[in-house]
């Protein structure tokens, strides 16, 4: 899908008229695109007007049912400042060819599983992952989950290709109104503010399929020189800086 095409999907997106694959692609895109985010906000406001024109009060008895149910329903914790610590890196280390071959062997079982899943979801994802893993500089970072967090996230990438592939599996559905969001941390020597990710450090947003198969597979343009990757839960529209707890994190070895 070309860049122009994806900007044009905001209208179909707010109408919930995209198929799941396109919706994922658009959400990936619009989290990082101010134009599309403005479109989404404006179109939603428009649709609220349209919705008001077809308003129908529900049966009176529903109010009591709703109030009874919320009285026993716990609210989500509000966004909390992220506090996960990342082991700082002494400096940039490129994985040597020999090591990457060894790593590839160790990872093989996992990658085969991923490819098997990928064929059912997106061929471009499987192709891109295969291309990345063929590179001499292929690197895979497994992100460590915070205590009690289910599922796995890995990022496979090649600087030579300029491509990163995000592989999330066995994940619980993101709580309603929230989405998993991926962040990258620049190398300490590559930024003026080495101690924190910033708005520029934000990569994109990936929302799990509502069908909830628990898998997230995305192909991204590799940001320059990543030092670490992290996943947080954010409001569905995406956040410009991290607001949720870091639930997965991994430093580049």
């Amino acid at each position: 899908m070309s860049d122009v095409d994806i900007h044009h999907l905001a209208a179909a997106y707010v109408l919930d008229a995209l198929d799941p694959r396109e919706r994922d692609e658009f959400e990936t895109h619009y989290g990082a695109c101010d134009v599309c985010r403005d479109d989404v906000v404006a179109f939603r406001r428009t649709l609220a007007e349209v919705a008001a024109a077809v308003a129908v009060p529900p049966p009176a008895a529903m109010k009591e049912r709703v109030l009874a149910e919320i009285a026993t329903t716990r609210q989500l914790s509000p966004r909390v400042a992220a506090t996960a610590d990342v082991v700082p890196l002494a400096g940039r280390r490129r994985v040597g060819t020999w090591l990457s071959v060894a790593a590839a062997v160790v990872l093989l079982a996992g990658i085969v599983t991923v490819l098997g899943l990928a064929r059912r979801t997106s061929t471009s994802y499987a192709d891109e992952l295969a291309k990345v893993m063929e590179q001499d500089d292929a690197t895979v970072t497994s992100l460590a989950p915070a205590d009690g967090v289910q599922g796995t996230f890995r990022v496979a990438w090649s600087e030579h290709l300029g491509t990163a592939v995000l592989i999330g599996e066995g994940l619980p559905a993101a709580p309603a109104g929230t989405a998993y969001e991926l962040w990258w941390f620049p190398q300490p020597d590559a930024t003026d503010s080495p101690d924190s990710p910033n708005a520029d450090g934000r990569l994109a947003m990936y929302v799990l399929d509502a069908a909830g198969d628990g898998n997230v597979h995305h192909v991204l343009d590799l940001p320059a020189d990543p030092a670490a990757w992290a996943i947080t839960l954010e409001p569905e529209g995406g956040a410009a800086v991290t607001t949720g707890d870091v639930i997965f994190i991994g430093a580049v070895a």
Partner: peptide, 22 residues
């Protein structure tokens, strides 16, 4: 459940409710 995370800068409660409803 999600009221704790409502962010008025991303749209009004009406817009959010109609989005969720749809």
């Amino acid at each position: 459940r999600t009221a704790t995370r409502f962010d008025g800068s991303k749209g009004s409660a009406r817009a959010w409710a109609s989005t969720l409803a749809h």
